[in-house]
Design a protein around this nucleic acid. Structure first.
Length: 216
DNA sequence: TACCAGGAGAAAA
DNA sequence: TTTTCTCATGGT
């Protein structure tokens, strides 16, 4: 019998422990990291964030005041640095105009999601990562690991539209912030431990649930 | 050396 | 409407 998302979560949590994670010290860093990690390994993002901290611009006022051409070299290690400099600037311009994260906290989740998605360079995954980890809203983040892992388990095809997958997960789980934060963290932990740099089914806590274990 | 990573938008079909 | 291309560094 195929396990439910709730059962998969229980197995992951039992294996990795409670994580409820985003590797950032402040909500503002989550926002920056969410843009910089687009199609990029987190290790490269860490270097860029460290550089921003080193330059003392890892805050809204300083970063928003930095032109894209000066920002780009600072985030070079995260790849796509010209594109990401423009995307980050666009997001920070909106955040600054709105009055900062505290003001965003006063906006209802669906309206805030639409506000984020209206920013050029912010797609559904980036918007939901910001909502979940910077603004503590219970939304389910769908990323490449989620699609890969759950399609490998035979629970989804992996090609479904983002919102279809997010709605399915949300319907299968209690709507709890801690659960959604920790579930995504578990998926990333599994992805990093098992899927990269090469598949390691022998250490996968879900191997018994996987119809094609050994050929991830 | 070649491939891939926690995407997104624009262009082409 | 769907598919393909582009953006780019760093690790393996």
């Amino acid at each position: 019998m195929r396990p439910s998302p709730a059962v998969i979560y229980a197995r992951l949590r039992n294996h990795f422990g409670h994580r409820r994670w985003w590797p950032a010290e402040q909500p503002f860093e989550v926002l920056v990291g969410a843009v910089l990690t687009q199609n990029t390994a987190w290790t490269n993002v860490e270097k860029a964030i460290a550089r921003l901290r080193e330059e003392q611009v890892l805050n809204l006022d300083a970063l928003q005041a930095l032109p894209a051409e000066k920002l780009a070299p600072l985030i070079r290690s995260s790849g796509y640095y010209n594109v990401k400099a423009r995307r980050l600037r666009a997001l920070l311009d909106v955040l600054h105009a709105d009055g900062g994260l505290d003001c965003w906290q006063a906006i209802e989740t669906d309206a805030l999601r639409r506000r984020l998605l209206a920013v050029k360079g912010v797609g559904e995954e980036t918007a939901d990562s910001i909502l979940l980890y910077a603004l503590n809203r219970p939304v389910f983040v769908i990323d490449a690991y989620t699609r890969r892992i759950f399609s490998r388990l035979g629970m989804v095809s992996g090609n479904e539209p983002y919102q279809q997958l997010a709605t399915w997960f949300a319907a299968e789980l209690p709507c709890e912030l801690d659960l959604f934060q920790d579930y995504h963290a578990q998926i990333v932990a599994l992805g990093n431990a098992v899927c990269r740099p090469r598949p390691r089914c022998e250490v996968c806590p879900l191997a018994a649930d996987c119809p094609g274990a050994g050929s991830f």
